[in-house]
């Protein structure tokens, strides 16, 4: 994507309906995650809740925060920070389990 700063927008305008669809999906996923929490699933409760939250979070980052429409560099930066965070999590749990 070649862009110049003389352009007011460096990506095409996102139609309003895209935002409404993302919002609808987020509301739907919230209803699902609350309903699922009433099932007593013991060990997988936290896992399912986290996975649904990850899907919702991805929708927010990709559409509301425009990463889907930005230059690739932003997606790479986000992956780098998530990788760094994963290393923090890994090191913390290695320390916690093997101390």
């Amino acid at each position: 994507m070649q862009t110049g700063n003389t352009q007011p927008h460096d990506h095409p305008l996102v139609p309003y309906r895209v935002y409404f669809m993302v919002w609808g999906a987020l509301i739907g996923l919230t209803v699902i995650t609350v309903c699922v929490s009433y099932l007593d699933m013991k060990h997988v409760t936290v896992l399912t809740a986290s996975m649904i939250a990850a899907v919702k979070g991805s929708l927010v980052v990709l559409y509301f925060m425009h990463i889907r429409f930005e230059q690739r560099i932003y997606a790479f930066m986000i992956l780098a920070i998530l990788g760094t965070y994963a290393i923090f999590i890994g090191l913390t749990f290695v320390d916690y389990w093997y101390r």
């Binding site: 609350v34 409760t45 936290v46 939250a53 927010v60």
Partner: peptide, 23 residues
């Protein structure tokens, strides 16, 4: 401002299930 606001939303998306829905 919008990016900041979406981040606030994003944090809550993870806070909500982990505190309210694991019981």
């Amino acid at each position: 401002t919008g990016l900041y606001w979406h981040l606030v939303d994003l944090v809550w998306i993870f806070l909500f299930p982990l505190f309210y829905l694991i019981g």
